[in-house]
Nucleic acid binder design. Structure first.
Lengths: 149, 149
DNA sequence: CAAGCAGTTTAGAATTATTCTAATGTTAGG
DNA sequence: CCTAACATTAGAATAATTCTAAACTGCTTG
């Protein structure tokens, strides 16, 4: 027997510190916590660091019974990125990844599987960066180590 | 008055150390020096280090009166890359660049203009690379410094 | 140097990834 | 509750790239 929608909502709210945390997270980023965003945020942020593509997240969402369109997934990923709660990584012209780790860090790229793995910033020492042309400000430094496997 | 085809060919051959060099270059790479490849190779390799996209090279070819199709440009770029005389760089999911500099080196990426500039390997000191997972072999390390200009 | 085959080129169709559009739905504030 | 601002959606549109199958050409052989 299915719980009444009221009871169900209450359960969600009660067991909801997770929901509440996500809501707060989106709000802090200046985003309205809509159903779709909440569902996607749950998939993204409830399981440690992740690297997703629009398609992979879309599939996951469908599998877990969340009703969203692919356009919404693209929207959410870009919006999240512009608000700083995701980071976009482009390895291959055919694929753009979104990384839930927004700290300064780097990546291993596994050529065969096409997957990424984070490398903590402390694991790589970049000394002697060259002067930027015209003294332009560096907005980001990405190191990608491609490995054959 | 147009030169006879024989004379023309002779001229090309005579003034042709450039042509000959390109022919040799393609041959060494294991490629047949066809008209289209020669024309594209001339555009690519006769003017120092370059960063082109398929579209940009295609435009150049058309402007300089070379008859090639876009498909051929893609073909040539990928073939050249697989033979090691070009190097592919993906900065942005929407654009793939081909770099005539195939030495180990790195890049500045100018976010506003969407252009690249080489950074000699000696200009960056990468110390303490992390161990690769499973001891996998590193096939390449790319450092991209994005600058805001 | 003619013949033929493997490797190339081509136009256009097909595919893939992503963005746009405009209509509809939802959230949050008063 | 009402409403304005913001989000979502399906489907069309766009952009970059790849595929296909037919025509062509460089190169080796006879």
């Amino acid at each position: 027997m299915a719980p009444s929608s009221k009871k169900h909502r209450q359960q969600l709210t009660r067991s909801g510190s997770r929901q509440d945390r996500l809501t707060a997270y989106l709000r802090e980023a200046g985003l309205r916590p809509t159903r779709q965003r909440m569902a996607l945020a749950a998939l993204l942020f409830d399981q440690g660091d992740r690297h997703v593509t629009a398609e992979s997240l879309y599939s996951e969402a469908l599998e877990s019974g969340v009703k969203v369109s692919l356009a919404t997934v693209y929207n959410a990923l870009h919006t999240f990125t512009s608000k700083g709660i995701l980071r976009e990584i482009s390895i291959d012209s055919s694929r753009s990844y979104f990384d839930t780790n927004v700290e300064e860090h780097h990546h291993f790229y596994f050529e065969k599987s096409g997957t990424l793995e984070d490398i903590d910033q402390s694991q790589i020492r970049l000394t002697r960066l060259p002067k930027t042309p015209g003294g332009l400000k560096i907005s980001r430094v990405d190191v990608v180590i491609r490995v054959d496997g």
